[in-house]
Simulated assay, not measured.
Amino acid sequence: MTSSKESSDVTGTKDKNYNLLWFTETCLNNALRMETYIQDADREKDTELAELFRKAQADSRKGAELGKQLLRSRLGD
């Protein structure tokens, strides 16, 4: 993040912690979005596309889990 003032001065949260929160939330949101895409592909019987979205969803879930683990270990920071 580039600005003349540290964003932590505005948010009250260190940039690195804010970034980790953002990353975790984004992974969770993406996993939810992929569910819609999977259902759309399944409805159209496009198994190739559905599989792509399932893999993306699994990756998003993995990222979210890693983010949550790191958040748990840093909450006191």
Rank of each mutant, 00 (worst) to 15 (best):
M1V: 05
T2W: 13
S3V: 14
S4F: 09
S4A: 11
K5V: 15
S7G: 14
S7V: 05
D9K: 09
D9Q: 15
V10T: 11
T11G: 04
T11L: 11
T13K: 06
T13R: 13
T13C: 13
T13E: 10
K14M: 09
K14R: 13
D15P: 02
K16Q: 06
N17I: 10
Y18P: 06
L20G: 01
L20S: 05
L21Q: 05
W22T: 15
W22D: 12
W22M: 13
F23C: 04
T24G: 00
C27R: 05
L28Y: 09
N29S: 09
N29K: 11
N30Q: 14
A31D: 01
A31Q: 02
L32A: 14
R33N: 07
M34D: 01
M34L: 06
M34P: 00
E35G: 07
E35A: 12
T36P: 08
I38L: 00
I38E: 00
I38T: 01
Q39G: 09
Q39K: 12
A41K: 00
D42C: 05
R43P: 04
R43F: 15
R43Q: 13
E44D: 11
E44C: 07
E44I: 04
K45N: 10
D46V: 03
D46H: 00
T47D: 14
E48P: 06
A50T: 02
A50D: 02
E51R: 04
L52G: 04
F53T: 00
F53W: 02
K55F: 12
K55D: 02
A56I: 10
A56D: 02
A56C: 09
Q57V: 03
K62A: 10
K62M: 06
G63T: 02
A64E: 02
E65D: 09
E65L: 07
G67E: 01
K68Q: 11
L70W: 00
L70E: 07
L71M: 08
L71E: 03
L71D: 04
R74K: 09
R74V: 15
G76A: 15
